[in-house]
């Protein structure tokens, strides 16, 4: 009885069709592409999806509360470019890494405070801060690249390190979203904010916290970005906002708030990485990636709408 219930519930899970799609795609690619089913290839995919993936975890939390964060890419870039000023001066990692993360936290907090205080829609606040942060980077760094990055910074972006960090965060935040008061309360905020407020949920505080986390995740993605590319550029993180929203939405999170899972977001990021790798190896023009991502978003949302209609 109990196992049957479990099975039933498993079938209702939103992620299953997505997972099935991924498996089919892997089978398809491994038949059509020689050398697709190799450890190296999957290691490469895992490295590629990590930076946007980590940003997407924060984005998931933000979307679950019914908000949006368009400033993630700008925060990433700001944190590493300003942090980069310390890096090229040769300060130790023990200072620079916390500093970069702190910058992310501060910028995320600014977003949260503006949203809560001014009661301006999140899309406007983060559109504004995106501009502010991006402009500030160019003013401070004068658009220069920083290439003299000590080798110590590369470790975090090489081998399996990024992916391991990504997976650890996934596990922690999947658990947080499902099992902790914070996680359940942000679902309540996104689903019915007034009810959450009446029930004594610290709505404003949790909203700020969600943007703060999103800021930290962006900064962390930036640290890994340095490790992978070996240099710091002002244009870092451009397009991350849209890519991470895509991954999150493909993963089944509603942009209206109230529902979403971290596992779904992981699957969404993984699917996007898989397709990129596949079309690269098929020697198909890499520009197809954008077309496919767009179609995936439309498909995923139409699928959700259909499911919802059937439920009602």
């Amino acid at each position: 009885m109990r196992t049957k219930n479990r099975l039933q519930r498993l079938i209702q899970v939103r992620e299953l069709p997505l997972l099935a799609f991924i498996v089919l795609l892997i089978i398809f690619f491994s038949i059509t592409i020689k050398g697709f089913m190799t450890v190296q290839n999957f290691a490469m995919i895992s490295r590629q999806i990590t930076t946007v993936g980590i940003v997407s975890i924060g984005m998931t939390l933000v979307l679950v509360t019914g908000g949006i964060d368009l400033s993630v890419g700008a925060i990433l870039s700001f944190a590493i470019n300003i942090g980069g000023l310390l890096i090229i001066r040769g300060l130790p990692i023990a200072i620079t890494y916390p500093f970069i993360l702190l910058l992310g936290a501060i910028m995320g907090t600014i977003n949260g405070l503006l949203i809560v205080w001014l009661k301006v829609p999140a899309i406007i606040v983060t559109l504004g801060t995106m501009n502010i942060f991006r402009g500030a980077i160019m003013i401070i760094t004068r658009g220069k690249y920083m290439t003299q990055i000590p080798d110590g910074y590369l470790w975090i972006g090489s081998g399996y390190t990024p992916f391991v960090i990504f997976v650890i965060l996934l596990v922690i935040f999947e658990f947080t979203l499902r099992r902790t008061r914070f996680g359940r309360n942000i679902v309540a905020i996104g689903s019915n904010e007034q009810s959450a407020l009446y029930s004594g949920v610290p709505v404003n505080w949790f909203k700020i916290l969600v943007y703060l986390l999103s800021g930290i995740f962006s900064a962390l993605a930036g640290i890994i970005f340095i490790g992978r590319s070996g240099f710091i550029q002002p244009q870092a993180g451009i397009g991350y906002e849209m890519n991470s929203i895509a991954a999150v939405v493909i993963g089944g999170t509603s942009i209206y708030g109230g529902s979403g899972t971290i596992i779904g977001t992981f699957l969404g990021s993984f699917l996007m990485g898989l397709i990129l790798a596949g079309i690269t190896m098929l020697a198909v023009n890499a520009y197809w990636q954008g077309v496919i991502n767009g179609l995936l978003i439309i498909l995923a949302i139409s699928f959700d709408t259909l499911r919802q209609m059937r439920r009602e």
């Binding site: 504004g128 801060t129 501009n131 991006r134 402009g135």
Partner: peptide, 8 residues
């Protein structure tokens, strides 16, 4: 880029 900041 001051313009960008100002706009925000």
């Amino acid at each position: 880029f001051w313009e960008v900041v100002l706009l925000g």
